[in-house]
């Protein structure tokens, strides 16, 4: 197995799948301003996915384009976090998912900009700028909703309770990471997890929310074992490419 290729798929699929979920909001946001904001997030993620897949295709060296990788793999070949494929739910659920993910992505990219792989470092540098804004946006919303009305607090606490079980997977590591760590391409998850925990704790505290305990932790996405939701995402995502194979659009 080509570890670098595998790692890039994990990185790219995260961006693609969360970008896809965010794009489902377009036209349905709670207010126009936020509709526009969520589409900006989505566009950033689609852009990230495009550059990561492009590089993954080059690394794999089998002539696959970014689109081939995005649209023409089967369910078990997608390596995104299970967290990201979860349905949008209400706006609070979407922002909670975003917040938990952004809080992980920022320390990750802060380290990846020092990657010994120049291309990864460059992608991380661009993505980091975007991620900082995403995190600011989602953190502020978590605080507003948590410390807003009784209804909003209940809703967003429920979302946290639902999504928390998917957060251990953020720090998943296997032989792919081990190999790339040894050559200085990717960082260790230890520091990222520490940063994540302290930041998430601080914001949830300000939002007057309680971190749930005793949740059974869900993992598998990194190895291609997903929840039932991914299949439906792919059904829409791949519809055109599957129905009209090999055509230019």
């Amino acid at each position: 197995m080509n570890s670098l290729f595998e790692y890039l798929l994990r990185l790219g699929d995260d961006s693609l799948i969360i970008g896809h979920r965010l794009s489902e909001w377009c036209g349905h946001g709670p207010i126009l301003e936020e509709d526009i904001a969520m589409t900006n997030l989505s566009l950033d993620f689609i852009g990230q996915a495009t550059s990561i897949y492009k590089y993954a295709g080059e690394v794999e060296d089998k002539g696959r384009s970014a689109d081939d990788l995005a649209f023409l793999r089967f369910d078990r070949e997608y390596k995104n976090l299970i967290l990201l494929e979860q349905p949008n739910g209400d706006f609070g659920m979407t922002m909670m998912k975003q917040f938990l993910f952004d809080s992980y992505r920022k320390p990750l990219f802060e380290r990846l900009i020092h990657s010994s792989d120049d291309m990864i470092a460059a992608i991380a540098a661009k993505s980091l700028k975007e991620t900082k804004y995403h995190l600011k946006h989602s953190s502020e919303w978590i605080i507003r909703l948590g410390d807003g009305t009784e209804e909003s607090r209940n809703r967003v606490q429920d979302s946290l309770d639902t999504l928390w079980r998917y957060t251990s997977e953020l720090f998943f590591e296997d032989s792919v990471d081990e190999e790339l760590k040894s050559s200085g391409i990717v960082p260790s998850m230890d520091g990222i997890k520490k940063d994540w925990s302290s930041y998430v704790g601080e914001i949830l505290n300000r939002a007057t929310l309680t971190i749930p305990i005793n949740n059974w932790e869900q993992e598998g996405g990194r190895k291609g074992m997903h929840s039932e939701h991914l299949g439906y995402i792919l059904t829409e995502l791949q519809y055109m490419q599957r129905a009209y194979p090999g055509m230019e659009w």
Binding site: E34, A37, N40, H137
Partner: peptide, 20 residues
């Protein structure tokens, strides 16, 4: 102009709406 609940949000909304 735009709508926002607080100044922070107003700045972010302005960024998203008027500097695309």
């Amino acid at each position: 102009s735009l709508r926002a609940a607080d100044a922070e949000m107003a700045i972010e909304n302005a960024r998203d709406v008027y500097t695309r």
